[in-house]
Amino acid sequence: MEVYALVGSSGTGKSYKALEFAYENDIDYIIDDGILIYRNKVLAGISAKQAKTTVEAVKRAIFYNLEHRQKVREVIEKENINKILVIGTSKKMINQIVDRLSIGKVYKFINIQDISTKYEIEIAKQSRKEGNHVIPVPAVEIKNMTSGLSINPLKRIFRKGNNINMVVLEKTIIRPTFSYIGKVYIDADVIKQIIEYEVYNFGSIDRINKINIENCNNFMNIFVSININDLEIIKKIESMQQIIKKSIERMTLVNVQKIDINIHKIKKINFLPC
């Protein structure tokens, strides 16, 4: 197995350029930020972009967790890999990844300055300052493995050498939790309005008595007290929790850990005589 290593400091556009470099050099496999990628598909791993803190993100990127690295290593052993590209911020980091995944020695180191212009690197740095990160897989793959992230697909038409055939390389721009937590203030009333909208959309809700929101650093816990006028709504409580969670995470980019919905009162129902 030939191991290629793309090295560059954080935010210089390594993941952005990875697909082009891999395509030019007939490399089908990429290891980037804790995940193993085969062309446009995530085969194994847990993305560092899903981490709630920077420290946790770094640990995932270097496969610090034994269970994480073993799962990725098992998939690598099953695949018939001729070439693989490993992305990291330094040679030390690359060597840690290579050693932990038992994929041999690095065949060739490539610096980001070798494949990107100064202008491209500056653009990448500015984008990172805004909290944006790139993962070299399509958005549909990211949606299957993440929750509560801002996700934007990015497609680029690319041609290898003088080849007349062109391919579309699809990447994804995301804003992970550790990029935006603590930098944006969201009024509690905004969260409450989202909750009220989704709850009343279910119908059969007499009133919302109380909404409590608890902020816990990297996530929030929510408590909702409601009165209902139809017993059938009890069967929909779990669905209500999921919809509220998805709406809040989509609109505010804040992770929701728990939603408790308490039915305080069932409004008196008048039954018709038999």
Rank of each mutant, 00 (worst) to 15 (best):
P153C: 10
R128G: 02
L154F: 12
P176I: 03
V58T: 10
N218H: 11
F271I: 11
I233F: 05
E170K: 02
K246S: 15
G88M: 00
H264R: 10
V254F: 09
R159W: 06
N201G: 15
A57G: 11
P176E: 09
S204F: 03
L6A: 08
Y23W: 06
I37F: 06
I164Y: 12
I266D: 09
G11V: 01
F202A: 04
I243D: 12
Q113L: 03
Q257S: 13
E249I: 05
N162S: 14
G182M: 06
N82Q: 07
I84D: 05
N227Q: 05
K236D: 15
N25R: 03
R69Y: 13
K235F: 14
V190E: 07
D114L: 02
I142F: 06
E77W: 06
M251R: 03
Q113N: 15
D26S: 14
D187C: 03
I186H: 07
N40F: 09
E20P: 01
F223H: 00
L154H: 13
K235H: 12
K118S: 12
I27F: 08
V190P: 04
Y64N: 09
Q113P: 01
R60G: 08
K52M: 10
L36H: 08
E141N: 12
F158C: 08
I211H: 08
N152F: 12
Y23V: 04
E2F: 01
Y119R: 01
N65A: 03
D99P: 00
R100V: 09
P273V: 07
I261D: 14
I222Q: 03
I37H: 06
Y23L: 13
I233P: 04
I62D: 11
I37D: 09
K41T: 12
Y64S: 10
V7H: 02
S116Y: 01
K129Y: 08
I157T: 14
N111R: 03
I269D: 09
K14Y: 10
V55S: 15
L43N: 13
P153V: 10
I266M: 12
A5N: 09
I244M: 15
V3A: 02
I30G: 05
S9N: 15
K143I: 10
